[in-house]
């Protein structure tokens, strides 16, 4: 895993915040307890919805925390690509194509080597490879008539493979083609803009920021009828503890919301949590956030 230098760029594609670099994705998970939502399809595992891949979609709240704390900056990815690819010079293009060609050739060689290793392993498991080397030795020694009578039958079965393998090695390999995950290269990574655009966040943002600052992980909570489902650690390892809804400080809400949230939370072994931010008392001072957990007491 390559180290990530901060601040790192966050792609803004049509108003959504996406990460494409696997190192950055691991970095925010480890160092900023931000896990986002993987929304992409994993190549070769594209017929299931349990494990998803790159890109990682960040909630606006997550992007906001990262930008506010100076870990990241937002850039307009569509604009960067439009400039980078529609105006690409012939020289840059051919250079990049040559580089991709090399990677494709390298890949083709790897694939062939793996295939050879596999067949060699399979042969060894059946005890044929040994027979093959014995055969070579016996050829060198110009034979004693019967080089192991028991292996003789299958030995004939494996002989046609040998010349075939050699023929592939001699031929120029058909190139493989690679679709890279990120656009760097050929583009240069976006530079940090002088003015930081903060992502727009919904009004429940304070409770998210508060829980994130305490080391909790958050996922979008619509499935559980709340704003965030809050995890005590990495969701890879832990179950979520809180179904969290952010409110306004003096906001009145329906008693039924407590019943609904509390019932649902208790039935899925989680706790319903509501929280709000106290209005700023002085200019520029961040308000205090208070949170309350609600559980069926089960008396």
């Amino acid at each position: 895993m390559a180290p990530v230098t901060e601040p790192f760029p966050i792609s803004n594609v049509a108003g959504r915040y996406l990460l494409f670099d696997v190192d950055v994705i691991s970095h925010v998970r480890r160092n900023h307890n931000i896990c986002g939502v993987l929304i992409g399809t994993i190549p070769n595992l594209s017929q299931q919805n349990v494990f998803l891949g790159i890109p990682l979609q960040l909630m606006p709240e997550e992007a906001r925390v990262l930008v506010e704390q100076g870990h990241a900056y937002i850039f307009d990815d569509a604009q960067a690509h439009m400039q980078g690819f529609f105006g690409m010079s012939r020289k840059d293009r051919l250079e990049f194509l040559r580089m991709m060609d090399e990677r494709g050739q390298q890949r083709a060689r790897d694939v062939r080597r793996k295939a050879e290793e596999r067949s060699e392993k399979a042969l060894r498991e059946k005890g044929l490879l040994q027979a093959r080397t014995e055969q070579k030795e016996s050829e060198a020694l110009v034979a004693e008539g019967d080089p192991g009578t028991d292996a003789g039958g299958s030995l004939f079965g494996s002989t046609p493979q040998l010349p075939a393998n050699r023929r592939v090695a001699d031929k120029k390999l058909a190139p493989h083609f690679i679709t890279p995950t990120t656009s760097y290269p050929p583009l240069a990574p976006p530079s940090q803009p002088s003015t930081l655009a903060l992502p727009e966040v919904p009004r429940q943002y304070p409770i998210y920021r508060y829980m994130q600052s305490k080391g909790y992980f958050a996922m979008p909570g619509l499935r559980f009828g709340c704003h965030y489902s809050i995890y005590p650690g990495d969701p890879l390892r832990f179950h979520s503890h809180f179904l969290t809804t952010g409110l306004g400080w003096d906001e009145e809400f329906e008693l039924l919301d407590i019943v609904g949230g509390g019932r649902l939370g208790t039935s899925v072994k989680k706790t319903y949590l509501i929280g709000a931010e106290e209005p700023e008392k002085e200019e520029g001072e961040e308000g205090k956030v208070r949170a309350f957990s609600i559980e069926w007491a089960g008396m």
């Binding site: 792609s11 594609v13 049509a14 959504r16 996406l18 494409f20 992409g40 790159i54 890109p55 990815d77 569509a78 960067a80 690509h81 690819f85 690409m88 293009r93 990049f96 194509l97 991709m100 083609f177 690679i178 679709t179 890279p180 995950t181 990120t182 656009s183 050929p186």
Partner: peptide
């Protein structure tokens, strides 16, 4: 030039 996954998101969306 091959379109990267990132490029595909930037373009198609």
């Amino acid at each position: 030039v091959p379109m990267s996954l990132q490029g595909a998101y930037a373009a198609f969306l």
